[in-house]
């Protein structure tokens, strides 16, 4: 080895397969999606500490108690963090340039203690901005029900 001239490139191999999964969401997320279909935002509440999870969680991670109470939350939220995306993820996992920048934010609904990662309409946002949810109750895919957020007013 060592002193030899540059080695041939090591051969490569791939296989055109795409294993498919179907994740059951469980009864807590089911309530969330059912709520969105009716235009409602449903969060789960811990009976011990009052922490409200949105999206809902069956167990309160702080108390290890079943979050069996439900609260309907207002559609208004506050931006906790935001970023202007110049890229998106391509199918092969590369980051490719977007034609027009998009805003992605962590928003916290009024009355909730956890965040939702969401797309913001418009070109600008800042931490602290008040926004409201845009719900597309007719969306085919449940993941599109909570379509985006837009600035309040």
């Amino acid at each position: 080895m060592g002193a030899k001239a540059a080695k041939d490139p090591v051969p490569r191999a791939s296989i055109p397969l795409n294993p498919v999964f179907n994740w059951s969401v469980g009864n807590w997320m089911e309530v969330f999606y059912d709520g969105l279909r009716e235009g409602k935002i449903m969060g789960s509440k811990c009976p011990a500490c009052g922490r409200v999870s949105l999206p809902p969680r069956m167990i309160c991670e702080r108390c290890f108690v079943k979050a069996e109470e439900w609260v309907e939350l207002p559609s208004t939220a506050t931006v906790q963090a935001c970023t202007t995306a110049s890229v998106k993820v391509a199918e092969n996992g590369d980051l490719v340039d977007l034609d027009a920048p998009e805003i992605i934010a962590m928003v916290k609904h009024d009355g909730a203690d956890t965040c939702i990662a969401a797309r913001l309409e418009g070109k600008e946002a800042a931490v602290g901005t008040k926004v409201e949810a845009v719900i597309d109750t007719g969306a085919e895919n449940v993941l599109d029900l909570l379509a985006s957020y837009k600035a309040v007013g």
């Binding site: 994740w23 059951s24 969401v25 469980g26 009864n27 807590w28 997320m29 069956m58 167990i59």
Partner: peptide
């Protein structure tokens, strides 16, 4: 199918 992964493990 009534639970997700995290809930099953719980």
């Amino acid at each position: 199918r009534d639970v997700n992964i995290a809930e099953l493990v719980w």
